[in-house]
Amino acid sequence: MALNKVVAGPQEALTGVADGMTFMVGGFGLCGIPENAISEMVKRGITGLTCISNNAGVDDFGLGLLLQKKQIKKMISSYVGENDEFERQMLSGELEVDLIPQGSLAERCRAGGAGIPAFFTPAGYGTEIAEGKEVRNFDGKPHILEMALHADFAFVKAWRGDTAGNLIYKATSKNFNPMMAMAGKITVAEVEELVPVGELDPNQIHTPGVFVQRIFQGSGYEKRIERVTTRPRV
């Protein structure tokens, strides 16, 4: 029998979250972010959080909502340029920020979930992000040692999921979600459509349910677009 990971909603899904914990939050910009889990974190008012997420949302959406309420102590990200409040808190020293090259961030999450404690990458060699990191040459080229990342909770968002926690993402909303799903001690998946086991084609599943501890049918998705860009019809 397939395991049943279904919980009632965000409230039950976030059972056990507490001040000072480390969270991975999927998404790229506002694309593929776990909107329901973020809302629940805001509602619970937990503070002192370390958030690992490629971006920090915008001022009034995504992780920006947690920043507004000063719930985040430390952000681990690759690009934070869309959020004025973030930049203000960082430059004033209120917010601790660890900026990591995007590929290294993705691989550090993947490594955390895959039982690889660290790896060498050429990204960032010779820059300030290499300071204090071990350097080794491979084929005559210098690489720096990057450590795996782990989280108490990983919050991911998928398009479709089944009751066993198998997930399918849509288009570029996949981004960081699969690696973060692997790296959470407790991974909470929220989906636009929750279906019974057997409905998803096993050939098409992106994240196997083994990586997911809790899954729920999300609701009220805004799916805000950061930069609506179109071309004229000819």
Binding site: F28, G29, L30, C31, G32, E82, W159, K170, A171, T172, S173, K223, R224, I225, E226, R227, V228, T229, T230, R231, P232, R233
Partner: peptide, 20 residues
């Protein structure tokens, strides 16, 4: 290319966060 107006998909963006 960028989508026609009205055909934007929030799940389909580029690294600049533009709809594509």
């Amino acid at each position: 290319p960028f989508p026609y107006e009205g055909e934007e998909d929030a799940d389909l963006i580029n690294a600049g966060k533009q709809t594509i």
